[in-house]
């Protein structure tokens, strides 16, 4: 009876020790980036302290935008909304455009990857179109769609789709010959081959494409909104520039960066949920 009682506290103490060790390591890992940020802010402060400085100092920036920072949820009607709502409407556009791009891109990628004829026909076109900058699509999509909102969603779609197509195609073409040989020997039906071999083997490549795609989407929406207007973080920046609120621009840029990082992490996180353990090498 005494033996288990002896073991339990030792084990839990051991875990506590390990947890605090982990927390300590984590804090240690935070030191270099924190130091880097402090140095960056100091340089910024020094450079913008002079009377002729064109940009506000970091301290000034925070003073100017304090209301935006502490209250991201205000809504005074029109485009006069808190940063949360600005980011939220941009995210909605990205969500629609990116989801469409993901579905269409994966489907096209599988089609092109499985058919050598399709590959030789379409791959050169994809390779050319993927290099077109997102904003170059905006005029033509405005001309075609005639409405600002859907046109900006189309820009997201057309920007995000190329890396998704190209990576999915690559994934299909890289399916190990061994797996295809297994499918041939077992004479797997087309649907079984698709769900048991082709799709699982391609998933890591698809997620690489999705990750590049979401990054490009976020780049594109900020630029597109600047031109299109309405509620959105892109137009917020443009509007702030027009009314000379430079501090607002800086704080919005920080928001854009953080949201972009979170979107990237979100795709990686979904990837870790979906990807089988064996494929995470």
């Amino acid at each position: 009876m005494t033996a288990p009682l002896d073991i339990r506290p030792t084990r839990s103490r051991f875990n506590v020790a390990r947890l605090s060790q982990q927390a300590l390591n984590w804090l240690k890992g935070l030191i270099p980036p924190v130091v880097a940020i402090v140095i960056f802010l100091s340089i910024w402060q020094v450079l913008t302290m002079g009377p002729n400085a064109t940009l506000p100092t970091p301290i000034r920036t925070i003073q100017d935008t304090w209301e935006l920072i502490i209250n991201p949820f205000f809504d005074y009607g029109g485009t006069d909304k808190g940063l949360f709502w600005q980011v939220w409407s941009s995210l909605q556009r990205v969500a629609i455009g990116f989801s469409l791009a993901a579905v269409a891109g994966v489907a096209l990628g599988i089609l092109v990857g499985t058919s050598p004829l399709m590959y030789s026909a379409l791959d050169p076109i994809f390779q050319i179109l993927r290099t077109v900058p997102p904003l170059a699509w905006l005029p033509i999509s405005l001309a075609a769609i005639q409405q600002a909102g859907p046109a900006s969603i189309f820009v997201i779609f057309i920007t995000a789709i190329w890396p998704i197509i190209i990576n999915t195609t690559e994934g299909v073409r890289q399916i190990p010959q061994d797996y295809n040989n297994v499918a041939k020997v077992l004479r797997l039906s087309k649907p079984t081959y698709f769900f048991k071999i082709l799709f699982p083997a391609t998933v890591p490549y698809i997620f690489t494409g999705l990750r590049i795609g979401i990054g490009l989407s976020w780049l594109a929406i900020v630029a597109a909104e600047m031109l299109i207007g309405g509620v959105g973080i892109g137009f917020f920046i443009w509007d702030a520039w027009n009314s000379s609120r430079i501090s607002d621009i800086i704080i919005a840029i920080v928001y854009v960066g953080v949201v972009g990082l979170l979107l990237d992490r979100l795709i990686v996180f979904i990837g870790t949920l979906v990807l089988p353990e064996e494929q995470k090498k």
């Binding site: 061994d178 797996y179 040989n181 297994v182 048991k196 071999i197 699982p200 089988p276 064996e278 494929q279």
Partner: peptide, 8 residues
């Protein structure tokens, strides 16, 4: 090289 499907 075994050729087992690693996700099954």
């Amino acid at each position: 090289n075994y050729s087992l499907l690693p996700w099954l």
